[in-house]
Design a protein around this nucleic acid. Structure first.
Lengths: 210, 210
DNA sequence: CTCGAATCTTGACGCTGAGCAGTTTACAGC
DNA sequence: GCTGTAAACTGCTCAGCGTCAAGATTCGAG
């Protein structure tokens, strides 16, 4: 549980409470979902009093924010790991999409939390940075063939946003059961690849925006 | 407020409490969001005791479920209204997409609720029916040129699911601020149409599912 | 060693959802 | 018109929640 210290049970100062609380909070979040989350429960599982989290996270929103920060970091890491492997555009996009869906499936409550910005506030600079880092990594990885274009270039942006929107929408709808996709293994499920095939990522589009 | 009866303030039996509670609950939901929703508050605004809702909705999940049912019905009605007008495939899809985004923008808390199935249970047959009705209407409207195909036909399904996924994903990401799209007027904003243009809804796809 | 700052506990307040007993009303049968 | 039963609603109670204030304990710089 504790990362560095054994933290013998009866010490007044925990030593590594912030990390321990994040762990127990994640546990609670996964079990009970965003709606059923409770800060007291997280504190209880970390073996500290109910108001111990206050000093580290302020309030519940702060704790959830810290959890979301960690989630963005992990997603970004996984995305970046994939990105390096693939070479061909379609192949890379397919791999990234599968990774995205897999992340959502394996960290469902966390994935839920990430796109519910009303649950936490964005005063924490670390949160902002990690979120932007993840978004940039996704945008970079999901671009079409003109991936080398400077950041402001429109067509590539449209393309990556389209792919991301499609994958994100599919992820949610499939997990919610609105679409009959097989989320248990998005790699072998053929619905997402078939849909991506409909997206012409090679064309630059925007010739006539209307 | 009350739909049929004036319900003079001091009557023991409200007369139309179920509808009144749905109204006040919607009001609370819009103001406080899904997370800050409170059944007591809804009862308070309807002018009845805290436990009055129990008889009509059971518990909070039941109330939220009833709210979601109404939301599905409204979405379906709006979708069906659009569907009849457009004739050309792309034109119809564009109109439907704009309608979808507009609905989400104008009923944000409600839209949030609709895709959070963990918040309510699906024992209510009315809820199930309205949701299926809405999904079928969307699927019908968002199909490509082969819209006449029987329901089991795969390619049309893939096409409509792709469009829906893209629009749904865009809606969420744009509303969450992750994408710089203009949700204030999805009709004139050019991001969504540009993305839809990338989706080749005319081709039947699925030639090689891999 | 000392003293301030950081960390954690205890106790309290008002809020929430939920269950239970009781009160008031509507209504069908006579 | 009367009565009994079911429906609709109230009031009370309980446990759990987030948050705050005050106090106890420990750390660490000087």
């Amino acid at each position: 549980m504790a990362t560095t210290e054994p933290a013998s049970a009866d010490r007044y100062h925990h030593g590594n409470l912030r990390a321990a609380l994040l762990d127990s909070a994640l546990e609670v979040l996964c079990e009970k979902g965003v709606a059923g989350f409770s800060m007291r429960e997280a504190a209880r599982r970390a073996g500290v009093s109910q108001s111990a989290p206050k000093h580290h996270f302020g309030d519940t929103r702060g704790l959830l924010g810290a959890l979301a920060t960690r989630a963005y970091r992990r997603l970004c890491d996984q995305v970046e790991a994939v990105e390096l492997v693939g070479r061909d555009v379609r192949e890379r996009i397919a791999a990234l999409s599968a990774e995205y869906v897999a992340f959502a499936r394996d960290n469902r409550a966390l994935f839920d939390l990430m796109w519910r910005t009303s649950q936490f506030d964005f005063n924490d600079p670390d949160l902002i940075e990690q979120k932007h880092r993840a978004l940039r990594a996704l945008d970079r990885g999901l671009r079409g063939q003109d991936a080398q274009l400077p950041d402001g270039a429109n067509p590539a942006r449209v393309s990556s946003h389209a792919v991301w929107s499609l994958v994100h929408g599919y992820t949610i709808l499939a997990l919610e059961g609105a679409i009959d996709g097989d989320t248990s293994d998005p790699l072998t499920s053929d619905l997402l690849p078939a849909m991506l095939q409909l997206l012409d990522v090679s064309q630059t589009a925007c010739d006539e925006p209307r």
